[in-house]
Design a binder for these strands. Structure first.
Length: 275
DNA sequence: CGTAGACCCTGCGCGC
DNA sequence: TGCGCGCAGGGTCTAC
């Protein structure tokens, strides 16, 4: 479900409901996520503490808590975090419930269970194995063409895989990698060894622009994305090529093509995006 | 070292 | 209707 824009939209929607609130109880209904939930440690580092800040790193949502601890949540493919009144009945696949002193509860629902929830000492976040390898944030000022070009030096392989490699740049998943390549006029199979400085700059700008537009539109709701208050995104109507196989390219009218790279669908315009 | 593929899991839409 | 198949927004581990 979620890439960087969806997590950022979720973060903004949850922020006013979580910051300043205290977690008063944690219910673990199913601990079999991507990594088994360490129930006791999670409870010890969250319950009784007030949320001081809600942040995002890559596709992780980070709730800093009193006492120098941070609740880390990753939504995987199908995860969802929503607020509900304390008395609301549990949903199917509602694995974790954080009860708040506001009379609301924060529910983590994830049918496929590729998601993740853990708590870490705030100071140890960056060194933790989940964060250690992460690359640059694409909405940072430091992200630009030369940064991409430098990261690509000595590498081979298709530019789409490069864009989706979190060790290079974080938060860009299958939808937004596909869209950014269209916007930059780059064929997804183009080798990173055959991209020059101007194209790297165009690509960095395309990544940033696509992500920012998606955030402004509330994210992309293909099936089930919603923010913390259940609002769906609108960016799917702005998608230029993703999930549009056979439909006309919005720029030139050619039929959009679909290929599979590293097991994932890629869509592109055979005219606007040259190999 | 870097890259491709399998795999984790459930749900949905499609064709038969 | 019901069933099987392919596919889905992520990440990690293994085999080359």
């Amino acid at each position: 479900m979620p890439e960087l824009p969806e997590i950022e939209v979720l973060r903004r929607s949850l922020e006013p409901h979580l910051v300043g609130r205290r977690i008063v109880a944690l219910r673990v209904r199913n601990r079999a996520l991507r990594e088994p939930v360490a129930t006791a440690a999670l409870r010890r580092q969250t319950v009784g503490r007030r949320v001081t800040e809600l942040r995002r790193r890559a596709k992780f949502l980070l709730a800093d808590l009193e006492g120098e601890s941070t609740l880390v949540v990753h939504l995987g493919m199908s995860g969802r975090l929503t607020l509900a009144p304390l008395g609301a009945p549990a949903e199917l696949h509602e694995h974790l419930v954080f009860e708040l002193d506001s009379g609301q509860k924060l529910r983590f629902r994830d049918p496929r269970r590729f998601g993740l929830a853990l708590a870490l000492p705030t100071a140890r976040l960056e060194g933790d194995r989940h964060f250690r390898h992460l690359g640059i944030e694409p909405l940072n000022g430091a992200f630009d063409g030369p940064v991409l070009a430098a990261a690509a030096r000595g590498r081979r392989g298709p530019v789409k895989s490069f864009l989706m490699d979190g060790r290079i740049v974080v938060g860009v998943g299958n939808i937004y990698a596909t869209e950014a390549l269209f916007e930059a006029g780059l064929h997804p199979r183009r080798s990173v060894a055959r991209i020059g400085a101007p194209r790297w700059t165009a690509l960095a700008e395309a990544v940033r622009a696509v992500l920012e537009r998606a955030i402004a539109e509330g994210g992309t709701t293909l099936n089930d994305f919603a923010d913390g208050e259940g609002r769906e995104g609108l960016f799917q109507v702005s998608l230029a090529v993703y999930d549009r196989e056979g439909e006309p390219c919005l720029r030139c009218g050619s039929a959009v093509r679909r290929i599979v790279q590293a097991g994932r669908s890629t869509y592109y315009c055979p005219v606007c995006q040259k190999p």
